[in-house]
Amino acid sequence: MIPAQFDYLAPTSVADAVAALAEHGDEAKVLAGGQSLLPILRMRLNAPGVVIDLGRIPELQGISEDGDHLVIGAMTTYAAVLASESVGAHAALLSKAVATVADPQIRHRGTVGGALVHADPAGDVGAPALALGAELVIAGADGSTRTVAAEDFFEDLFTTAVGEGELLTQIRIPKHTGWGAHYEKFVRVSHQWSIVGVAATVRSEGGSIAEARVGLTNMGSTPLRARSVEEALVGQPATDEAVRAAVASVAEGTNPPSDLNGDADYRKHLATVLTRRAVLAAAGA
């Protein structure tokens, strides 16, 4: 599979990248890890005239701490997230979800930022980003930046708040230190995207659930946050019975797809089972 010809730019700063985007407009496409973009180009689903590689921009790389937030550069690979002790300690849910993405090769190329902007509803980073209340920092054409809450970031299938000429630069995640976490991913073969995934993180106090955050993967055109379930879980003991009751309605109001891997009703059923399992595992039960 050979992509159509394109020009290749490799800016070394966000400012240069944004300027290049402004210059080439519709013709340009930014390249992060390439794990979604390259298949698109090779299958000739798209033929941008210019590809702007973000791989040489140091400010987009790396993981740091900023007070009660973790800051992850958009170009940080899945593998780097997995290797990071601070992500493990303060946003364990993200580590757990990232560990289920594809296979090691893809995790060494694919980036958290690329995945968020690609916004595949079956992708595994959206739900944990939502559940953890992440904020997404976006650089605009005029050198300005704005910060968008995860809840407002995902607009539709493959559509986010990142507009024409903009770049996602950082993911800021409020620390969830000491929270238990689990990502329950349901697939038929190991290297598959989620048929349904449930991201759950839980703060426990004396054997019961003090706070819970739950995100759903592939239960609609964007990742979803199950707020009513989160509320229902507060104060519940981490027992099968209690959690089963609290999560029973998790699929209500969702609009999952029907495809080769399952129809919408099956997915709704799965979400209910998987949410129970994810919450119980996150609560260490």
Partner: peptide
Amino acid sequence: EGERDAAPHFDEGVPNQDPGAANDGSQA
């Protein structure tokens, strides 16, 4: 069951993509 589509992981509708450039998948 009846026919169903595959999940669209590499959709033509990705923002910033030019749908006019899209070809039918059979020529990929």
